[in-house]
Nucleic acid binder design. Structure first.
Length: 210
DNA sequence: GTAGGGATTGACT
DNA sequence: GTCAATCCCTACT
């Protein structure tokens, strides 16, 4: 069990924060038991200068967490059926967040398999942002939770930070705007990294991940 | 009030 | 490779 993640590591820069989150462990208490995943793929989204960010058009009820203090969960609902989870970055008042795109299950594998019975391989359990959120049971009611708090039902731990030599970057997945900004980061070769898919209208670029 | 589309996934050809 | 599922948010009338 590693210590809680240092909130200051998320406060100075969202791109740096995204890279620092690679290898960190997100641990959630679910109705089936506690599940922990080590983050292997993330994407950075920032403020008003990033057309792909939800915060681009200003603060709304949905994206308010992005404008708050670092280290809080921003959970949103997409495509009428899926949830995606972010961790807020930058100080209170500066909008930014890191989308948690994929992770590898650290514990408990049995619980994880119960929660995602359709996953064919263990590497698929949290391979993709909606799968990760589903595995950890992250839903609307978790929006705004402080994950740097030992009493929180969802906690962020130091885990096993990624070796910087194995970190790769490329364009973000599925975004319609700013598809050339290389703010997706992943651990090279990790089997839980999700496949790259260009966003609508985006040119094919970067090839496959991993 | 209402239309258009989305930081996706799983099933199917 | 293609496509449907399905609801909330945002923008615009």
């Amino acid at each position: 069990m590693t210590p809680l993640f240092d909130r200051a590591e998320l406060a100075d820069d969202v791109v740096e924060g995204a890279v620092r989150l690679l290898g960190a462990v997100l641990e959630a208490d679910t109705p089936d038991g506690t599940v922990a995943v080590r983050l292997v793929e993330v994407e950075a989204y920032r403020g008003a200068d990033d057309p792909a960010a939800h915060s681009y058009r200003g603060r709304t009820a949905r994206n308010a967490v992005m404008f708050g203090p670092p280290g809080h969960l921003y959970v949103y609902f997409v495509y009428g059926m899926h949830f995606c989870a972010n961790i807020s970055c930058l100080p209170d008042g500066e909008p930014a967040a890191v989308l948690l795109r994929a992770g590898e299950v650290v514990s408990d594998l049995g619980v994880a398999r119960v929660r995602r019975p359709t996953a064919r391989r263990d590497a698929d359990l949290a391979k993709g942002p909606a799968r990760l959120a589903s595995l950890l049971g992250l839903r609307r009611e978790h929006n705004g939770l402080d994950v740097i708090d030992p009493t929180s039902p969802v906690r962020l731990r130091v885990g096993t930070p990624a070796d910087p030599a194995t970190v790769r970057s490329g364009p973000r997945v599925g975004v319609t705007a700013a598809h050339t900004t290389p703010w997706r980061f992943w651990i090279d070769g990790n089997p839980a990294v999700s496949p790259y898919r260009p966003g609508r209208g985006a040119p094919v670029f970067g090839g496959r991940a991993g």
